[in-house]
Simulated scan of single mutants.
Amino acid sequence: MKDTTRVVAVAVAAVAQVAGSPLGSALSGRSVGDVSDGARSLVTPAGYAFSIWGVVFLGSLAWAAHQALPSQRASEVHRRTGWPLALAFAGNAVWEVVYPFGSPAAQWTAQVLIFGITAAAAVAYARLQDLDVTGAARVLPAATAGLLLGWVTVAPVADVGNTGVALLGIDPGSAASQVWAVLAMVAVAVIGGALVLASRVAAGPFALAVVWGTTAIAAAGGPLPVTVAALGAAVVVAGSLVIRALALRRRREALLVG
């Protein structure tokens, strides 16, 4: 019964996060992109970066179907990661409905949600590290969890930056904004690099998503110090993956894929 409840929760949450964005747009009359573009900060990625959600959504739906198979319901990897990933997916769905409204209450609620999503994804990723992930589980859910966590390691930075511009009236062109943006990229580099160096599973997808996000921040055309810091963060995380892969003589496939 417990497995059935978890399986259903994962499936419902995976579908809900796909439906969340059009539902939020229909209810508010604006898209997530409209609100984000109206309050761009120095750490808002270039628009193309958000296409990564399509890959995350596809992986989430595929995993939801895979873990529902009778042969997979009692799998340890699904039992360990199912509930935290279901929470992350459900958080995404709620965020997508709330954020487009753009009001102060919606913005602050979105901040809480994005950090909650990150925490839930981090729990799932951490639980993968002591499992012997093989076969389809390397992609479903391991690589999907790594990709999700990598992106939501960068996303809160952009979310906080946009909220600062929209609600606090912070001037993106000020020197203070540049300093905070650079510090934010340093934080992403430190956290991302440390996590990769400590990982045994799915560090490749995690690093790929972080590099995707930070290079998109660099590509957004901000001030030179922010661009350099964003590219530096990408180099640190990518370099950490290379170092970890060279040091880990066994299970490199699990590290690089899932």
Rank of each mutant, 00 (worst) to 15 (best):
A216T: 05
G102R: 03
V211T: 12
G82R: 02
A136F: 08
A88Q: 09
G193Q: 06
Q129L: 10
V165Q: 09
V98D: 10
A142L: 06
L87A: 15
V55S: 06
G232N: 12
V211S: 04
F57S: 12
V236H: 08
T163M: 07
W151G: 08
A142T: 03
A166D: 03
T214S: 08
P100F: 00
A218P: 13
I52Q: 02
Y48P: 03
V18W: 01
A90L: 15
F89P: 00
G20K: 08
R80Q: 13
P223W: 02
V188M: 02
S21W: 01
Y125V: 00
Q17I: 06
G239H: 04
A136Q: 03
L147V: 05
G33S: 15
G82V: 09
G47M: 02
V190K: 12
D3H: 05
P172L: 03
P45M: 05
A229L: 08
L140W: 03
A233T: 06
I191D: 00
A202L: 11
G102A: 13
T109L: 15
M1N: 10
M185A: 07
T163I: 12
Q67V: 14
G38Y: 05
L128N: 03
S75H: 14
G232K: 07
I170P: 05
W95G: 02
G59D: 04
F57T: 05
L195S: 10
V179Q: 12
A175L: 13
F115N: 03
T153R: 04
P172S: 09
Q107I: 13
W180S: 09
Q67N: 08
T134M: 06
V112E: 07
Q107Y: 05
L167P: 00
G169N: 12
I243E: 06
I117T: 13
A229W: 02
V77A: 11
A209F: 08
V152S: 06
A187R: 06
I117R: 13
A120E: 10
S103C: 13
Y125N: 07
D3K: 00
P100T: 09
R79D: 10
V8M: 09
G169W: 11
Q107A: 10
A86Q: 11
R244Y: 11
S31R: 06
V98P: 13
V179F: 13
A106S: 15
A219D: 06
K2M: 08
V242W: 06
D37H: 10
Q17G: 00
F206H: 07
L197E: 15
L208H: 10
A124S: 14
V237Q: 14
A230N: 08
I117F: 08
S28C: 07
V165K: 02
S25I: 01
A209G: 09
P172D: 01
A126F: 09
P45A: 06
A175P: 07
V154E: 11
